[in-house]
C-alpha cells in the first residue's frame, strides 16, 4: 500500500520543463530514495509534494485521496538549503516552527525538552541562532523537522554539513523513525547512504523518472553476470578448463593468490562454472559482483543521454 502517489506530474517554468510526466509511488513505511543529477527536477518534485508549488498537470495522492492544504501538518521537510531566523533564540524559534505545524504550545514544549535532552542541546535554548555553529544549527533544524511526528518525512541531502559522528547519529535517527512507522523520502547524491538506508528508489533525469522500484530488484536487473573467483593455482590451468560460454574479464594477483573476474555469457549458470573449475584450481572464494548504486546511477544516466 502506498502512502503517497504522484501521477503524471508536469511542471513548467519560463524557459524549461522541470518535470515531465513523472510518476512516483512511495510505499508506506519505507525509505524512498529520490536520486538524480543536479537540476534534474528533484527539488521541484519535493516542493510539489510539500504544496510549496503547484504542478501544472497531474496530481498528488496521499493515502489514495488528493493532497489537501492541511496535509502539510503530517509532513516534515528538511530542505537542502537550511535556514533559521538568525536573530531569534533557538528555543523560541523551535517552538514557533512546531506550532506552525499545528502542535499546541504545551505538546511542543514537552517534545522539545525531550529532543533537546537527547541531542544534548539544552544549553542552546536561549542562544540566538547566529551564535551557533553550522552543525549545531543543522541539529536544531533536524529536531524541528521531526518534532510533530510526521507520517511523511522529506530529507533533502540530510547529511551535508554534519561531521561523521553526527551524521551517524542522524542515520540512526532516520532508521528509528522508520521503525516507529514513518515513511521517509530521502533525496541525496550520496549513493553509499542510499544502499545503506533506502528500500525503494526512483531516478529522475532530465525532468523524467527513468527508473523506479525496490533497490534489490533494480540491482538484480542491472547485474551483469560477472563473478569474482580467487584461488590458489595457475591461471592458465583455469583458463583451459573453461569453454566458449565464459569470458575472462581480468586477471590479478593478490596476497600470493590469483583472482579472476569471469562473465557468464549464456546458457550456463554458476554451478556449471564451478564444476568446470573445481578440478583445475583450489578455490578460496566465489562471489557474484552486484553493481553498486553508484555504477547503476552512472550507467543509467549515461545510457539516457545517448
Amino acid at each position: 500500500m502506498e502512502l503517497l502517489k504522484a501521477q503524471n506530474i508536469e511542471k513548467k517554468f519560463v524557459n524549461h520543463l522541470a518535470l515531465d510526466d513523472v510518476n512516483v509511488s512511495i510505499p508506506e513505511n519505507s525509505i524512498y530514495g529520490l536520486l538524480g543529477p543536479n537540476g534534474a527536477g528533484k527539488t521541484t518534485l519535493i516542493r510539489i509534494i510539500n504544496r510549496i508549488t503547484a504542478p501544472d498537470k497531474g496530481e498528488i495522492l496521499l493515502k489514495g485521496r488528493p493532497l489537501q492544504p492541511e496535509d502539510v501538518n503530517i509532513i516534515g521537510y528538511l530542505p537542502e538549503e537550511r535556514g533559521l531566523y538568525k536573530k531569534m533564540k533557538v528555543g523560541e524559534q523551535a517552538l514557533y516552527l512546531a506550532r506552525l505545524k499545528g502542535l499546541s504550545k504545551r505538546d511542543a514544549l514537552k517534545r522539545l525538552k525531550y529532543w533537546f535532552g537527547k541531542f544534548e542541546m539544552e544549553a542552546w535554548w536561549d542562544k540566538k541562532v547566529e551564535e551557533l555553529s553550522k552543525g549545531m544549527a543543522q541539529k536544531v533544524q533536524f529536531v524541528t523537522t521531526i518534532l510533530h511526528e510526521p507520517e511523511l518525512l522529506i530529507f533533502d541531502e540530510p547529511f551535508s554539513g554534519f561531521d561523521p559522528i553526527n551524521a551517524n547519529m542522524l542515520k540512526q535517527e532516520i532508521i528509528d523513525l522508520k521503525k516507529k512507522g514513518a515513511t521517509i523520502i530521502f533525496s541525496t547524491h550520496n549513493m553509499a547512504s542510499v544502499e545503506e538506508l533506502c528500500d525503494h528508489i526512483t531516478l529522475i533525469n532530465q525532468s523524467r523518472n527513468i527508473l523506479e522500484g525496490h533497490i534489490d530488484d533494480i540491482r538484480k536487473k542491472y547485474k551483469s553476470n560477472i563473478y569474482e573467483i580467487s584461488f590458489n593455482g595457475e591461471v592458465e590451468k583455469l583458463e583451459k578448463s573453461l569453454n566458449q560460454y565464459y569470458e575472462i574479464i581480468d586477471k590479478t594477483k593478490v596476497d600470493g593468490h590469483s583472482a579472476v573476474r569471469i562473465k557468464l555469457l549464456h546458457q550456463t549458470n554458476e554451478n556449471e562454472l564451478l564444476s568446470l573449475i573445481i578440478p583445475a584450481v583450489e578455490i578460496i572464494s566465489f562471489k557474484e559482483l552486484i553493481p553498486s548504486m553508484n555504477d547503476i546511477f552512472i550507467k543509467v544516466v549515461n545510457e539516457y543521454k545517448n
Binding site: 510549496i52 492544504p69 530542505p79 535556514g83 533559521l84 531566523y85 538568525k86 506552525l100
Partner: peptide, 12 residues
C-alpha cells in the same frame, strides 16, 4: 536566511 522554504512548507 532560507527560512522561507520551511515556513511555506507549513503555511501558505
Amino acid at each position: 536566511s532560507r527560512i522561507v522554504e520551511i515556513i511555506i512548507s507549513s503555511a501558505r
